[in-house]
Design a binder for these strands. Structure first.
Lengths: 254, 254
DNA sequence: CGTTGAGTTGACCATCGTCAACAGGAGTGG
DNA sequence: CCACTCCTGTTGACGATGGTCAACTCAACG
């Protein structure tokens, strides 16, 4: 559906060094991994890092690449280190729902299921740590604390999914958009540090498909916030101008 | 908020024997548990059942009892054997979202988190198998295959929650209601066997809060389906008269 | 320099939430 | 035993929210 367009507007997401030129992989030592503390790998004892190193390959993707497709046999799990990934499901009648966006530090493959439950496509040049499923599963068998950590993270995902249910079903589009901007800000902060600038590498259509509204409505809400001087819109995201008011709107009773 | 009303309209849910009279517990042997094959406990080897027996207590609740409240320390996990339970979250601004209904065979406490993520209240007289959290957690440490099974079930829950996101955000109220009726039918079938009758022990308000619509709209949709001869409405649920049309509606593009 | 896709804005109107009224059944207290 | 209250469920009227269709701009790319 999407071609490999490869606009490199978002190469800087998640790190301050230039993006990789080739799509070939190059192993990075887990020891120096900049998202290790954020991620599943935090459960790994320093003494065990060598095992992880052996298991994993760092792999780089252009924007608009596919990590894996929905319902195909799950070959690997991924730990995103830089960039951003769109997670989507196509329902039986052909409509697309975006179930989330994976940012640096996020882990794809928590469920360890035989088949993938959604598609994962990059929306910016992305680096990821790739763990072959079989080997990773074997590692889990020898490391119960890793499995427990995996389970805790999956439970956290479940709580997030349920929050998403609440956001979608009980809030107006205005509230949903305010929640979205604030949530994305919080998530980027873990990677980029404190900032009023919120990268939004995804399209308006992606945002709409995530928030359960059309791209037109998503666009209208954005410009409405900008008119009200709550945010200012840049080509690569938004800048929060009035956080207090945004939070008010996010919590306001309909 | 709710008193212990105890209308026994739904005492028959999930089994064909009369409901318990007292609220006192009486141990049932896991070996003879009628939902064991459906549930987490299916991961337990027959030889290990004695350990489970020792751990668990069968406990009975009237309708409108509370198993646990949201955000309180998690004391126990529950395996529902008969009846039905409403799982709900109150959001920051005080509105209620029902995140699901637990039926016989469902397990509450998959996340093994320190605190509960939602409230659980019975909507019918209910029996459940209660596992103290600490002892259950200890058992998990000695039985990796049980932890794996727990993880698989939690992953399944996650997939369901994401389906719920899709249902709520992309479907009309008509579609949501059709999906709801068909889903509840499928879930009850695992317990009650093949039948066109679908027990709905929850109120219209519960259904609305689950499907992201008001109770008025839920009621209107029900009567609309009844007018169109797709279902017939009984005080304790609905009977499916035209399954094909319901399925059509559930899948129909908006 | 033409094509493509993202983003924006406007006009229109269907859907669904809100407010309101009412019926029926269950529990309660005189 | 009956009146009263409370709760559930139902139905109607009305209007705002947000989807649909359409037109247009702009930037990127070949």
């Amino acid at each position: 559906m999407h071609g490999s367009v490869g606009k490199h507007r978002f190469h800087w997401l998640g790190h301050s060094v230039p993006p990789p030129i080739s799509s070939q992989s190059a192993t990075i030592k887990c020891e120096t991994c900049r998202v290790r503390a954020l991620s599943l790998c935090a459960a790994i004892m320093p003494a065990e890092l060598a095992e992880l190193d052996e298991l994993s390959t760092e792999i780089m993707f252009d924007a608009n690449s596919t990590l894996f497709d929905q319902d195909e046999p799950a070959e690997a799990a991924f730990n995103i280190t830089t960039g951003a990934v769109r997670l989507s499901r196509i329902s039986a009648d052909g409509r697309r729902q975006i179930v989330g966006f994976a940012l640096p530090g996020d882990f794809l493959g928590l469920s360890m299921a035989d088949r993938t439950l959604f598609s994962a496509e990059t929306i910016a040049p992305t680096r990821a740590c790739r763990f072959p499923r079989k080997a990773f599963s074997a590692l889990l068998d020898t490391k119960p604390h890793l499995l427990k950590r995996l389970h805790v993270m999956a439970s956290h995902e479940l709580a997030l999914a349920r929050d998403q249910v609440i956001i979608l079903s009980r809030n107006t589009v205005e509230q949903r958009m305010a929640v979205f901007i604030l949530t994305m800000r919080d998530r980027w902060q873990r990677v980029l540090g404190e900032s009023v600038h919120v990268p939004l590498p995804m399209t308006r259509r992606d945002i709409g498909d995530f928030l359960g509204m059309t791209m037109e409505t998503a666009s209208r809400q954005m410009t409405k916030f900008a008119r009200e001087a709550l945010i200012s819109i840049a080509p690569d995201g938004v800048t929060i101008l009035n956080e207090m008011s945004l939070k008010q709107i996010a919590l306001l009773r309909k």
